[in-house]
Design a protein around this nucleic acid. Structure first.
Lengths: 132, 132
DNA sequence: ACAGATTGATTGTATATGCATGTATCTGAA
DNA sequence: TTCAGATACATGCATATACAATCAATCTGT
């Protein structure tokens, strides 16, 4: 599985770039989703990132423990919406420039056109998902 | 990270296809590497799959416990070369057709050209690796 | 109004992954 | 010949990931 191998390599590139901030690529994904959403509904985030709810649940737990996320009250007591804390926002601001450096390196490693192809594949995937 | 998201989705496709055999995509990767190599040197496999040696070490442990792999004696007592057992070979034979079905599904999900692009990216990556 | 179905999230369990470190072995140079 | 450094794996630890089962809250139909 070439995709799995590429994923390992590229994830390591991002993790390296973020290591000194004490955050990992997977976590930044979730933090950025929360940043975009404001108030993030877990199932919504799972849908956006194609993550299993149980995976998100523990990732959020860890990031709550680190003080980057906080849960919000909700009308429906079954839901556990969360959002960035101010520490979380500061972290995202520090992470973004390093993320961009890693992005450049990833682009170089993957070669011309790869990023665009990933975008097309994402689109294709969303399409297939919507049809099912 | 689109690559990470695609990896999650596609890995699940393969894992679903292989579930009834009790084997996962990550394990089939290693089994196939061992099948191709005959006698598989751990560092060689790590190089081929871009895996950390510690990761391979535990994956091999688990697959030894399941009776799919066995370690070989070696001139150099530091090395722990391994190979497929006959049970491992039988498993690979059963896994291959399911793997191919998953491959078709993956191709459909990722869309035209994606597989070829992954191949180009792999090539690019090997190039970058060789230069460093 | 309530029993049963549904929904949203967490928990139990297992595997995958990588970094830092440890341990045994090997090798080359003094 | 010996020993300092290099090499090949294994271990300790932490995170990521998903499936199955569970739990709690809500909804629905009668």
């Amino acid at each position: 599985m070439q995709l799995r191998r590429l994923n390992r390599v590229i994830t390591n590139v991002y993790d390296d770039a973020l290591r000194s901030l004490g955050v990992k690529a997977s976590q930044v994904n979730i933090l950025v989703a929360a940043w975009k959403l404001g108030i993030a509904n877990p199932l919504k985030v799972c849908d956006i990132l194609d993550l299993d709810p149980s995976t998100l649940s523990r990732n959020v737990q860890r990031m709550r423990a680190k003080g980057w996320l906080e849960v919000m009250p909700s009308d429906d007591a079954r839901q556990q919406p969360f959002r960035l804390t101010s520490a979380g926002r500061k972290l995202v601001e520090k992470a973004v420039p390093r993320w961009q450096v890693a992005q450049q390196q990833a682009k170089r490693l993957l070669g011309d056109g790869a990023i665009e192809m990933l975008g097309r594949s994402m689109k294709n995937l969303r399409q297939a998902k919507a049809e099912s």
